[in-house]
């Protein structure tokens, strides 16, 4: 495609690309810059620090805010990984059935997934809170993992079933004809084809769970289960009346790092995961 484009068009699209880069990275650059400001620079109303300092990072890792932040980080990582794992496993079976089998209720399952995906989270926080405090799940990991499934499961089912639909399942039969056993055919042919989809789905699910705020602030109350987004909103300065802008920025940067790493490593997969379903395989 590149070869057909005129130089002018090339420059135009390149400029467009540059604009996207600025669009996407500018706010991130700002929060990074803010997190590197020394306390004296925080209110200087400038984009860049005049004096670079790691003071804010010290604050959240070893200082006053570390107790709150580190436990929140541990909670977030653990809870999100488990929720992602469970939802991807469940979605894998469901998606396989939807993509490959004929059975009544297929549409019902997809519609349910859609309905759950668009469900107003806040609507179920109250009843969940009431139920959780009665059965002792309030402020625990499972108490967040279960509601997180309502966020991650529907998207997993949709993404995976779209993905599985594109897999040329005939190849498995072809492999069997060539003398491979069922298991071999499955492992050598289907697994490599399905794995990227499953993997991508897992990443997308993780992002969604990682992003949650409503459940995080409503269903937890201590560092036992409080995830990072909730902890960010609860950060404090050296007294109740002081706002820890620097510490919040530093923590915001830290929790963005895993996201950026995942994107850097798997950007092609993630985009494919979000788009492949609709593209002819």
């Amino acid at each position: 495609m590149d070869r057909q484009l005129s130089t002018r068009a090339k420059v135009g699209w390149a400029l467009g690309g540059l604009a996207i880069l600025v669009y996407a990275l500018f706010p991130v650059a700002w929060i990074v810059s803010l997190s590197l400001k020394a306390p004296s620079d925080l209110s200087n109303q400038q984009f860049l620090p005049t004096r670079f300092s790691l003071e804010n990072y010290r604050e959240i890792f070893t200082g006053n805010a570390s107790e709150l932040f580190l436990s929140a980080l541990r909670n977030s990582v653990g809870i999100c990984l488990i929720a992602t794992f469970i939802s991807v496993v469940l979605a894998m079976f469901a998606a396989y059935a939807i993509a490959r089998l004929e059975f009544p209720g297929k549409r019902l399952i997809l519609s349910t997934a859609l309905a759950v995906a668009i469900f107003p989270v806040i609507s179920i926080v109250t009843p969940l809170f009431n139920l959780w405090r009665q059965i002792g799940l309030y402020d625990t990991w499972p108490g967040l993992i279960i509601p997180y499934l309502s966020l991650t499961l529907p998207i997993s089912i949709w993404t995976l079933s779209a993905f599985f639909r594109e897999i040329p399942w005939e190849m498995e039969q072809a492999a069997q004809v060539d003398g491979a056993t069922n298991w071999q055919a499955f492992r050598k042919v289907i697994v490599p084809l399905a794995a990227p989809g499953v993997f991508t789905t897992a990443i997308i699910s993780f992002f969604i769970a990682w992003n949650d705020f409503v459940y995080g602030i409503s269903l937890t109350s201590t560092e036992r289960a409080r995830p990072v987004p909730a902890a960010l909103a609860f950060f404090t300065g050296s007294s109740q009346f002081e706002l820890p802008t620097g510490a919040i920025s530093a923590a915001a940067v830290i929790v963005t790092i895993p996201v950026v790493v995942l994107i850097l490593l798997f950007q092609r997969r993630i985009v494919a995961g979000l788009t492949n379903g609709a593209v002819k395989g």
Binding site: A24, N211, F213, P229, L232, A233, A252, V255, L262
Partner: peptide, 9 residues
């Protein structure tokens, strides 16, 4: 990156 960043951030 904006897609995956935490809304609170």
């Amino acid at each position: 990156i904006p897609y995956a960043i935490i809304t609170v951030v």
